[in-house]
Design a protein around this nucleic acid. Structure first.
Lengths: 359, 359
DNA sequence: CTGAAAGCGCTTACAG
DNA sequence: CTGAAAGCGCTTACAG
């Protein structure tokens, strides 16, 4: 297998393409063609070159490649804007920015395109704008399912890869899903809440959301119920839906519920709106009621710190944004394989450990 | 402020150094000298160039720079080898490998240099070897304090930056510390265990370790005790030290302890040896005793799954290795500022959420 | 104190 | 189907 090296003026092993070119007795242009599977190379030389690439275990120098290409890869991130009720999205946006900082040296740019999460039409408008601007990759929080499918069809047609962030639409040809394992997350919530039940074993599940379609909370609730079923825990679960995030509305609903179910010991809020519920309980002197909810938002942390909220479950929101961007980078720039789903861990945050949590 | 652009043949804005050179009426070599603060430039032109750099908000192209330099940056990672009793180190090693994969395209290489964590002399030998090989940066798990100080003195003399991994030595001129906030971690452990106490409120703290100096467990215990003090919880804390990690020895000790303290309700093991204790409790049919300990090792997960261990506290061991390497990369290659300490989050792992944990 | 020129490894018109 | 040459932005001897 050892080859006899021709007496060369320079013993120094040439680098990548040059070395390959020399060994194959072709020019580096031809080598380049083979490496990138471009047409215009005879099968014979192609095979020869590929064999040498194998032998040399050649990996192209990414820096040199990007430098020569001088190409800019543009990613659109279609996610909710940060408002009082969507504080959650602060973190993924930061993650996207962190990713951009890291990969902009490779010519990757990320444009956040923010929509109003309580408005279907706003989503459509933003998505349309994104499609018109011809991005190389798309990151999408598919809050509105039908509207999302529209966008994604276009992406598919044009061969633009897209990734789902924080919420999934099954059976789409997305590059990957970056987000929580919602079902199991609800299961964890149930386990935590069951640790807090004492006497009546009555608990309340609250879903607070406006317009979005996102069925995350359904999965959460399924996981939640599964836990109680599996462990055959004698508990009474009341469940309410509130289609309004305003404090006044929520308080009205809850007052009503507690009127009829005064013995409720614990409340599970299926999303980041938990601070509104905590606020109600705090204001109405119901300090004995345990509370579990989602996400590391300033308001939630406030009520975690003052003891109203017992546990927050978090899914590393910042990292979700970061990884969504990095997945596209891996795919588009590095040409690497990306796993079809990347589930975030289910983190349990308490008053004691929240200080060191990196959301 | 607007400058009148001279009528140029090419309107195209030149890139980085060239553009600066043109504006300053010097060659790019001079610009390069200024950028890197190398000597041999008159104060006058230096000032002129610096001003232009400011104006242009110039950031050097890292890819081009590394490509031209062709330099390899070598990092030594002096950490414990992975044995049955130091399974923990599997994860940081993986993190180091992940980091290398990411930054080897910038010419960074990482050599793991593994020592036997139960042997002071092994540590010394490995550290010595590392010093002889003249690395550009050092990652160190300072299991043995005095011996570590030796190494670090040499690093300082030669201006080689070093970072502490998983355990800290205060007052050293380390670039950064990557590891858990041990004190607060003990505090969290106390909170968790207090949730598990029922009647006797007697609990046992066990430290199992062989030769290493690492005083992590002292901090952990301090945090642990602080919690009980602060919350004035009426509890009886027994504490034992076992200087041997073998199952037989541990079992002997524990048998003895439980003889005199049969009412112990919960055990807190201050490190990853918790599976040994869990094994003892499991084997001796003490399934009612709650157990808390550290780290996501296969053995620990086994006992978490079968319900013997109630909580594992983990500090993202894989990420610790990754971040240690990335800190040196940021410092040596990117010339960026690195925070003096990077504390890992205190993660609470249960039977319900362990499956999605990324250690 | 300063500059012209070659080179890092890859890519891309362009010419054949 | 193939190659020579220029260029990406930065660095580095070398010469002055």
């Amino acid at each position: 297998m050892k080859e006899v090296s021709k007496p060369d003026s320079q013993q120094k092993s040439l680098s990548g393409v040059k070395e390959i070119a020399k060994r194959a007795n072709v020019s580096i242009a031809t080598v380049d063609r083979v490496i990138h599977n471009r047409s215009g190379v005879s099968e014979k030389t192609k095979a020869r070159i590929n064999k040498i690439i194998e032998e040399l275990d050649y990996l192209p120098n990414l820096m040199a490649s990007r430098l020569a290409l001088g190409k800019v890869t543009r990613l659109a991130a279609i996610i909710p804007q940060v408002t009082e009720e969507s504080e959650f999205w602060h973190a993924p946006l930061n993650g996207l920015k962190r990713a951009e900082k890291e990969i902009r040296q490779f010519g990757v740019r990320i444009d956040p395109m923010l929509f109003d999460p309580s408005s279907r039409s706003s989503f459509s408008a933003v998505a349309k704008a994104a499609m018109e601007s011809d991005y190389d990759g798309v990151i999408l929080a598919p809050s509105f399912v039908e509207e999302s499918k529209h966008v994604l069809e276009k992406c598919q047609q044009r061969g633009i890869p897209f990734v789902f962030l924080d919420s999934n639409i099954p059976d789409q040809s997305n590059l990957t899903y970056i987000g929580p394992p919602y079902f199991q997350s609800g299961y964890v919530a149930a386990n935590l809440i069951s640790r807090l039940l004492r006497n009546s074993r009555k608990l309340l599940v609250v879903n607070i959301a406006t317009e979005s379609d996102s069925f995350n909370y359904l999965q959460i609730e399924n996981g939640f119920r599964k836990y109680f079923r599996e462990n055959s825990l004698p508990s009474e679960i009341t469940r309410i839906d509130i289609r309004d995030t305003e404090y006044e509305s929520v308080a009205r609903y809850l007052t009503y519920v507690f009127m009829f179910h005064a013995e409720i010991e614990a409340v599970f809020v299926t999303n980041s709106q938990v601070s509104t519920v905590a606020s109600f309980l705090y204001n109405s002197q119901r300090r004995h009621v345990s509370v579990i909810g989602y996400d590391y938002t300033p308001e939630n942390i406030r009520y975690l710190k003052n003891g109203t909220i017992d546990f927050l479950i978090c899914h590393q929101a910042e990292d979700q944004g970061y990884r969504a961007a990095m997945s596209l980078y891996q795919h588009l720039v590095l040409g690497q394989q990306v796993p079809k789903e990347h589930f975030m861990p289910i983190d349990i945050i308490t008053r004691e450990n929240h200080e060191y949590y990196r959301n």
